[in-house]
Design a protein around this nucleic acid. Structure first.
Lengths: 244, 244
DNA sequence: CGCGAGCTTGATGCCGATCAATGCATGTGG
DNA sequence: CCACATGCATTGATCGGCATCAAGCTCGCG
């Protein structure tokens, strides 16, 4: 904390056209000619060691970031010290959309493991999406999807109980990991119990207890951050069981 | 409920250029030439009596809607009967952004009083924002603002207590009403205690009790749906007081 | 080896949910 | 006009889920 690290930019250009995240990221559904145009735009990458901030609330907004490798959280900290994790982002997901509204970022983005992102200068994205209808279409869909996701979190925070929240969280996580080619049943949590709790509106002790309960019920196996899902159906039932 | 009312379309065209909500709505900051182009796009209005749905979850997504007069709620209902109000919209605010992501609406939009909206066919908006850089810019900002708003609600739902939630809600409401020229201190709630509760993650009894407490504390006067704020500063202090 | 960050587990208490009764407006039909 | 129904709001009594406080425990790392 005593001095500022210069940000690390890779010497080589990023290239959407040769990126294996193509179908999960901004270029989804675009033709190879169109993706080639994107390459010009996504000029640089940036590496962040675990714990480093990609941007923080109040920073001027210049660019969006696509997670290339690694894992991030975004969090809001209100003036009175309250803290809320608003999301976790993995490969192919976009960071920084909140900055568009006021030209300043409104939350912090923190790497939860060593990570790299592709830097997408926003004014260039605006320019290119002006030319490429498909890019505009995809970009709007991505923003809209973020809104839909947020509404889902509101539903979770507003009306679910602790077990339902954690179950929904785990199912969401495994589903996203699975889309990226990872196991659907076994994975490592990149965030602490406290960060999960903040995201889910629970205290870390409750998160821990709920993990233990799930383990006792034979739904999963927990060994610190290692999780193995044993009964996905059981978790699913938990989420969509009426409060009865 | 026994038959379907045909939707009412006004015989006259809407006109952004002569609309007094210009500066709160899509045309914000655009030149009069540009706004004139918008007029072609915002072709029709639609009137809804109180209680009617503008769209519902699952409907095909065709258009965005700008509230012209009246008041709406949007709400999510999950398969298991849970219900979550995700927002309240008043004049100048846009409805339907969630539909872009999957070409289907993901929530219901309900008029809470007799209302009119301007219909903005989405494919035309895409086309025009392709030509008008400023329109594109404004539209992106509006979507981003919705994301920022949602994050604020997450903070509220995830970390505030009942009194703080209601105080934050009331301050937000008065602020938006004030921007539209209404009194900052006196207004009529268009939604029920239950709808407020759903939005804030509380039960209606808790909302009612909290209103009563605020009244006892001299912060405001409640007579059913009529609210008069007596001590705005007091409410503000409530919101930003550390949990201590 | 020992320190510290993060995790687990237990005991207790409180906030808000739940259950239940009453009050208060608005509307409807006799 | 009154009797009655209906929807919404208020208020009280009780309960329960999660927060809080407080020890230990585990594991990675200098």
């Amino acid at each position: 904390m005593s001095f500022v690290m210069p940000m690390r930019l890779e010497p080589f250009k990023a290239a959407c056209s040769s990126c294996n995240l193509r179908e999960l990221c901004l270029p989804v559904g675009m033709s190879s000619e169109q993706v080639a145009r994107l390459d010009a735009l996504v000029a640089t990458r940036r590496s962040l060691p675990r714990g480093e901030m990609l941007f923080r609330a109040g920073d001027g907004f210049q660019a969006l970031y696509a997670v290339r490798t690694g894992f991030f959280k975004t969090c809001l900290s209100s003036e009175d010290g309250r803290d809320q994790v608003t999301g976790f982002q993995m490969a192919g997901e976009l960071l920084g959309l909140d900055g568009i509204s006021t030209d300043r970022h409104t939350c912090d983005a923190v790497a939860l493991e060593d990570s790299t992102v592709c830097v997408i200068p926003y004014h260039m994205l605006e320019g290119l999406s002006h030319e490429l209808t498909d890019l505009q279409r995809v970009f709007h869909k991505i923003m809209s999807r973020e809104i839909v996701r947020d509404h889902g979190v509101m539903l979770l925070l507003g009306s679910m109980r602790a077990e339902e929240r954690l179950a929904a969280f785990l199912l969401n996580l495994t589903q996203r990991l699975h889309m990226r080619g990872y196991s659907r049943t076994e994975f490592i949590l990149r965030m602490t119990r406290e960060e999960i709790g903040s995201y889910l509106g629970l205290k870390l002790e409750t998160v821990s207890r709920t993990f233990s309960k799930f383990q006792d019920d034979g739904l999963l196996e927990v060994k610190q951050k290692q999780i193995r899902i044993l009964d996905q159906e059981g978790l699913r039932r938990l989420v969509s069981s009426p409060a009865c």
